[in-house]
Computed example of a mutant assay.
Amino acid sequence: MRRGCAIAGVALLALIWLAPLEAWLPRFPLHMLRHMVLVALAAPLLVLGFPALGRAFAISPLIAAGVEFLLVWAWHLPALHGAAFRLPGAFVLEQATFLTAGLLVWSGSLRAARTGQTADALAGAGGLLLTSMHMTLLGALLTLAPRDLYAAFCGTPPDLPGQSSGGMLMLAIGTPVYLLAGVLLAARALGEKEARA
Rank of each mutant, 00 (worst) to 15 (best):
I63T: 15
A119W: 12
T115M: 01
R27D: 05
A125K: 04
A83W: 12
L137H: 09
L70P: 14
I173A: 08
L144S: 07
S60P: 15
I63F: 14
Q95A: 02
G108F: 01
L48R: 14
L18D: 00
L110R: 09
M133P: 02
A11Y: 00
S132E: 15
V183L: 12
I16W: 00
P29S: 02
G89C: 05
L71K: 10
R34T: 04
L46H: 05
A79N: 08
M135E: 08
A145N: 07
D120V: 11
T97R: 11
T143E: 14
W17N: 13
Q117R: 10
G167F: 03
L103C: 13
V183T: 04
V92S: 04
G127F: 01
P161Q: 12
G54M: 09
A151W: 01
S109D: 05
I59C: 11
L169A: 07
W75A: 07
P20K: 01
P78D: 12
L180G: 09
C154H: 11
L171F: 02
A152R: 09
T175R: 11
C154I: 08
D148N: 08
L71Q: 09
W73P: 09
S165E: 14
A6L: 05
P88Y: 09
L33F: 02
L104V: 14
M170C: 09
D159Y: 05
L137D: 05
L160D: 12
W75S: 10
S107F: 12
R27P: 08
K193E: 15
A14M: 03
L70R: 10
P88I: 04
T136A: 12
V39Q: 02
P61M: 07
F153S: 14
A43M: 13
R196N: 10
S109R: 03
C5I: 03
M168I: 13
V47M: 11
R147N: 15
R111M: 03
L12S: 02
L180T: 12
L30Q: 04
G108K: 04
P26Y: 03
P26W: 00
W17D: 06
G89P: 05
R55D: 06
A152G: 12
F91W: 13
A90R: 15
L103S: 12
T97K: 08
R196G: 13
W17L: 12
Q117G: 10
I16C: 02
L149T: 09
A8E: 06
L45D: 10
